[in-house]
Write a protein that binds this DNA or RNA. Structure first.
Lengths: 338, 338
DNA sequence: ATGAAAGCGCTAACAT
DNA sequence: ATGTTAGCGCTTTCAT
């Protein structure tokens, strides 16, 4: 491709003028502007972003680490964040964690050197690793707290309390929890919150252990759940809950009716299954957008509010019917209505 | 951050040597290499990608346009493609089309100037617009054909024929099709393929018209489908098919048993619903990887095979049971087994 | 094996 | 309103 100099030559102006036409158009004369634009079009030229970045010391790029791009919970938020970033004058590049590995670093490191700042959603990294990263580029966190790093988080405890309270209210006295992998901070938060919620309640809680955050894990846990005689199960995320639901279907056990199920995230998947899944909806879009605002402020050297808090919302659906609504439970998991 | 010169100074070598340590290490003496590395670590320095890009004339970045990042069909392929790209020495940046707009250009244009090449998956752009884009950066296409642009495509007709043949074989004589939006080339391909498949069959086909490729559209079409007296419905994609399935559930109509349903894409969503969705699986991962290979070849100035063809696979699941397997159909959609 | 010097394409003072 | 000049931080011939 041609370059600024050639355009300047053809337009009969200096390089500076050409530069200005593309970065600060108001300041240049209409007539000369037209000449320059004409020359540029003639050569099919547009400013090299790379050269621009070098001169400016900024790429205009932001990196976004998503733990699992296959998780429908993240699709819509990513799009919103991208639009938001563009409005701020930044391009947003996505690094998809693989959802099942305990280390996002390889992916993120590659990105870090190509962007002005990073937003990490529930990163699977130690505080120390986050600190290292921070020396390469400014970062902010979503649903993760680490000393000295701004973040936007949705407190887990509130949502978990609400969910457990709901289950108790509709009559459950033995509630199980499928935790995600141990390397996931999010899962640890939720696991801890579950135990807390049970503590402050009057019912029995049962931690089924750790599973990969996949659809298959839900099925995998089924035997254990049925044996546990719990009447309600909470999944670390919607995907696992739905995996369980599906396996129950397969075995001829009616989810909702015979075993109450709830998830976390509130992805659109919840309403794509039958019965629709009760879930604690996490406002990922808002959180990520808040974090994007934080990094851009960090980048521009402006002050940044340390920790934004955003509320979750319990969305009750058919997978946790109250006893009056649902058919009498039967089978090995049956229990009497209170 | 510090720069190459400072590192050179501290290590007591020239800039050139430092540069070589990071781009062509074999060629420099072990001892000096160690000194340089030491100095770099001391300053926490790593080469500026931007400066590097400018000098090399290449960014080392690839852009990937995905029509709808919320569609589970694309999550896993994107991850695979990213890994593949990294192995080729490129970072892959994702541009999420919004899935419902008729124009991906804004998003793509921004990317185009920041990458060495682009892979466009089923782009919603005219051939002309694609040609314009091509003047900014080399591009290759997935599931889209445009004159003069290399592509990796999965022929639609074969998959559609297989699917229709299957439905006919299990006894259906009136098959409906929910098309996607008119601006989607993919949908047009599939719509056309459906009509062709019906033509060469002995059964009746029914085109229900165009819908947004969303979960909600599936529900939206339900009335029309029930009124149509079709016994089988093919959705433009899995999401729409599952939306329909869900709505049937809500109305107390049993998908599979009372109305056969099939989708396209073969996303993991298919096995997350009950009954599991029959679908024509599209090997997006392979196709995107092939396209990535094509762009990188284009970038490196190597020769490129014009059009890679990849086969789809019909995956029959419980949403299209044969009559002998499924309960006798009842209600307004009832029909006699052949 | 290492260094000197020119240049990648743009922006930003600082003139005029 | 426009032009001059000096970089931004790296790579790369070409010497040595």
């Amino acid at each position: 491709m041609s370059n600024l100099r050639e355009v300047a030559q053809i337009a009969g102006v200096s390089k500076t003028t050409v530069s200005r036409v593309f970065s600060n158009p108001e300041v240049v004369n209409e007539a000369t502007k037209k000449k320059v634009l004409e020359a540029a079009r003639l050569l099919n030229w547009q400013p090299s972003q790379t050269a621009r970045s070098l001169a400016l010391g900024r790429t205009g790029n932001l990196g976004l680490l998503i733990p699992d791009i296959s998780n429908p919970a993240f699709g819509p938020p990513v799009r919103e964040a991208q639009n938001h970033a563009r409005q701020l004058g930044f391009s947003l590049f996505i690094a998809p964690g693989d959802g099942q590995s305990d280390d996002d670093r390889a992916m993120v490191q590659a990105l870090a050197s190509k962007v002005d700042g990073l937003v990490l959603v529930a990163p699977r990294m130690s505080d120390e690793q986050l600190n290292d990263l921070q020396r390469t580029a400014p970062i902010t966190l979503v649903n993760r707290i680490s000393p000295g790093i701004p973040s936007a988080v949705v407190p887990t405890q509130d949502g978990m309390n609400e969910l457990v309270d709901h289950l108790v209210k509709i009559g459950h006295t033995r509630i199980a929890f499928m935790a995600g992998p141990t390397y996931s901070e999010s899962s640890r938060y939720r696991e801890y919150a579950f135990l807390e919620a049970i503590d402050r309640s009057t019912v029995e809680g049962l931690n089924l252990g750790h599973f990969l955050p996949t659809f298959e894990s839900g099925a995998q846990a089924t035997d254990q759940i049925l044996a546990s005689r719990a009447t309600a199960v909470i999944g670390y995320n919607d995907i696992m809950a739905i995996g369980l639901m599906n396996e129950l279907h397969r075995r001829g056990i009616r989810p909702g009716a015979e075993l109450a199920i709830a998830g976390f995230d509130g992805s659109w998947l919840c309403t794509s299954v039958s019965p629709a899944l009760t879930s604690v909806a996490i406002p990922f879009a808002e959180a990520i957008i808040a974090a994007v605002d934080q990094v851009t402020n960090l980048i521009l050297g402006e002050s940044v509010s340390e920790n934004r808090l955003l509320p979750s919302t319990l969305i009750v659906r058919d997978s946790t019917p109250s006893f009056t609504q649902r058919p009498q439970a039967v089978g090995s998991n049956s229990r009497l209505a209170p």
